[in-house]
Every structure is written in C-alpha cells, then in structure tokens.
C-alpha cells in the first residue's frame, strides 16, 4: 500500500517537473518533438534509477559511517558524472541499438538537476533502498509523462499563430503553467 502511495504521489501529485521544478532545462530544450522526448525520457529513467541506487549506497555505507554527510553534494555529483560516462561506454559496446536511441541525450543528463535532485530527496526523506528505487522509477516515469504530453502539445504550435514576442521559450513556459494547473487536479489523490 505504501509503495502504491509513493508511486502515485511521485507520478501525479508531486510531479517532479510540474510541481517540483526539477529538470526544466531539457524540458524546454528537447521537448519539441515526441520522438526526441521519448529518447530523453528513456535515458533519464535509466540513469536516474542507477544513480539513485549508487548514491544511496554511498551515502549509507560510506558517508554515514565516517560522519562526513556534508560531503554528499560533491560525492553525488561526481558519482553521477562518472556513471553517465560509464553507461555511455557500456551501451556503446554492448547494445549499439540502445546507444543509437539514447546516446545523444546521455551527456546532457549530468547537468540535469532532476537526477541530483532525486538522489538528494531520497536521502532527505530517509527512504530505505527499496523505497528509494520505487521512488526514483516512478519519479522518472512522472518526468517522462510530463515531457511527452508537453512535446505533443508543442508539435501543434507549428500550426498555430503565436504572437511574435511569445514565440519559443515564453509560450512554452506559459503552456507548461497551464499543464501544471491540470496536474494540480491530481492533488489530494494520495
């Protein structure tokens, strides 16, 4: 039951993009087409889950025993950066097809604050390992959901007459605002 709560909350109620504001840069940047946002979502789900597991282990088995929890930011970001590199190399060697699909998005992910954000949130919420995994998988699913819906809307922009000044980023932000309002309807679900 508790896991279901975590899942629903992470996907709908506290959607990481639309209510926590994490990972907005790629949201505005790559969400022009459904196909690119599918690739980005896949890469994020993949990295976020592995990153959360590794940072959780490092925090609880390395930083806590030595009493140096204040090093969490610096160690997490290094782990994530290294991890992204490693995933890129491994994918290239073992699964060229998957690399083709996700490869271009991987370098962008290191500076995606959603990844570091989830790693830090899991520590802040004091989750155990299983909860952390459930949380990171469902959070990234929520991210994917928002990204894909948004890309679908933005594809329609090409057909719409948008005032000059609003073209590009401004209209994207305003649309995101309306989408966030729609997601507020989920509040109270969990």
């Amino acid at each position: 039951m508790e896991y279901i709560m975590i899942i629903i909350t992470a996907i709908f109620v506290n959607n990481i993009l639309l209510s926590q504001f994490l990972g907005i840069c790629p949201f505005i940047g790559v969400s022009n087409k459904i196909s690119t946002s599918l690739g980005m979502s896949g890469a994020i789900m993949f990295v976020m889950t592995i990153a959360t597991i590794s940072t959780w282990l490092i925090y609880n088995y390395l930083l806590v025993p030595f009493g140096i929890e204040f090093m969490q930011t610096i160690s997490f970001i290094l782990v994530i950066a290294a991890l992204v590199q490693m995933v890129e190399i491994i994918l290239k060697k073992t699964s060229p097809a998957l690399y083709q699909a996700l490869g271009v998005y991987l370098p962008l992910i290191t500076t995606n604050c959603a990844i570091l954000g989830v790693a830090l949130l899991v520590i802040q919420k004091d989750y155990d390992l299983i909860r952390s995994v459930v949380f990171s998988v469902s959070t990234s699913a929520g991210y994917a959901l928002a990204l894909i819906i948004f890309a679908g809307i933005r594809e329609q922009f090409e057909l719409a007459e948008i005032p000059q000044g609003l073209k590009g980023v401004p209209i994207a932000l305003i649309t995101a605002g309306i989408l966030a309002m729609a997601f507020m309807g989920f509040a109270g679900l969990a």
Binding site: G165, L166, I174, G177
Partner: peptide, 17 residues
Amino acid sequence: LAPGGFIVLGYVIALVN
C-alpha cells in the same frame, strides 16, 4: 503555486523579447 511560476516567467521573458 507551481503554475504561476511558469506563467510569470513566460510573460517576463516575452516582455524582455
């Protein structure tokens, strides 16, 4: 709330443009 953040930033950037 969250939606207001998106909308205000959107309009401010439009104004700057």
